[in-house]
Design a protein around this nucleic acid. Structure first.
Length: 331
DNA sequence: AGGCAAATACTG
DNA sequence: CAGTAT
DNA sequence: GCCT
């Protein structure tokens, strides 16, 4: 099992223990361990090999043993038992903003709630607002969270996303105001499933592009229509965003919106280590207090230029998962 | 053995 | 405002 | 759970 999966297991252990009402400090130890592992730059295999896992602050005897077991076998008795002891419907409830282990535990014990469905009913009947520690406001927040979640959970197969991209991209390319255009996000990274489609355009005249985008066929709702960013939803539920940036920013923005989030974090850390600051806007010398020098931002005429400026080899979108690819691209 | 992050939002 | 959960 |  790789680092990413292990981090996930540790996090789940934490939340499951929370639902079971275990010692908060123990719980904290697991989530802290997960964080530590995730931000560790070294290769997990090497660290285990050299027996240095336990030397890492926040990772003690118990976590070392569990992480090593997961790394070697992909299985963990302790975890399996925990999973079996917590109803899966309760785990689903964790996605609802405002609900954590403690409240879920109360809902389960007092109202027999064991799924999002039973929770919805309990809210509608006003039983949730009666509970100690809950109130009218909490109840409403839960209900709106459930609705919200339905929209958000709708991910689409890459293949379906591609057929949509094939319809939209050529249209954008034809517009005279469009200098460059790419589909970014998880689609560009080639993920199996794609949330929203993310289009990025370079242009100095966004308005006609926005107008075209928000009046395409098949749109059921224009969620946003601003100067440089618009969002639409198509029949079938697919959502698409369009951003227009000045051409100097294009590749920085493309890199940023291609992600992943973890990859971007790593890239920014790398930039900082060189005294530079990377963002969707550009790459420039890190701001220093009380020093107002005017060193201009780095230019990029391709994504390669950004990697090059950081002394890295090019990392293709499909590998940008923040799982060590940035470290591996050091030359 | 005994302590254990910090900020924010909500309940009562 | 204090206590509690996130 | 981890740390002192």
């Amino acid at each position: 099992m790789d680092k990413k999966d292990i981090v996930e297991v540790l996090e789940r252990i934490g939340t499951m223990m929370e639902i079971k009402g275990e010692n908060p400090f123990k719980i904290r130890a697991y989530s802290a361990g997960a964080r530590t592992l995730q931000t560790m730059e070294e290769d997990l295999g090497d660290v285990i090999e050299e027996g240095r896992l336990g030397d890492i602050p926040g990772i003690g005897k118990a976590l070392t043993e569990k992480i090593e077991t997961l790394y070697a076998t992909g299985e963990l008795e302790f975890y399996n038992k925990l999973v079996a002891s917590v109803p899966s419907g309760l785990m689903d409830m964790l996605d609802i903003p405002g609900l954590g282990g403690k409240k879920i535990k109360v809902l389960h014990e007092k109202l027999d709630v064991d799924s999002i469905e039973t929770l919805t009913v309990a809210c509608q009947e006003g039983r949730v607002a009666e509970l100690k520690g809950f109130g009218k406001k909490t109840e409403e927040k839960i209900l709106s969270g459930i609705k919200n979640r339905e929209a958000y959970a709708a991910r689409h197969l890459w293949w379906d996303a591609q057929s949509m991209v094939k319809k939209i991209l050529p249209g954008l390319e034809e517009l005279p105001e469009v200098e460059r255009v790419e589909a970014a996000g998880s689609f560009r990274r080639g993920m199996e499933t794609v949330g929203d489609l993310d289009f990025l355009v370079a242009s100095s005249n966004p308005t006609p592009i926005m107008d075209w985008f928000t009046s395409m066929d098949g749109i059921v709702e224009v969620t946003a229509h601003g100067e440089t960013k618009s969002s639409v939803r198509f029949e079938g539920g697919m959502q698409a965003d369009l951003r227009v940036v000045p051409s100097e920013q294009f590749y920085f923005a493309l890199h940023h919106f291609t992600g992943s989030k973890d990859h971007n974090v790593r890239m920014r850390q790398k930039a900082l280590s060189l005294g530079l600051s990377l963002s969707e806007w550009g790459l420039r010398p890190e701001e220093e207090k009380d020093s107002s020098r005017k060193a201009g931002p780095v230019e990029a005429n391709s994504e390669e230029d950004i990697f090059k400026a950081l002394g890295l080899q090019y990392v293709p979108p499909s590998l940008r998962e923040g799982m060590g690819e940035v470290e591996a691209a050091e030359r």
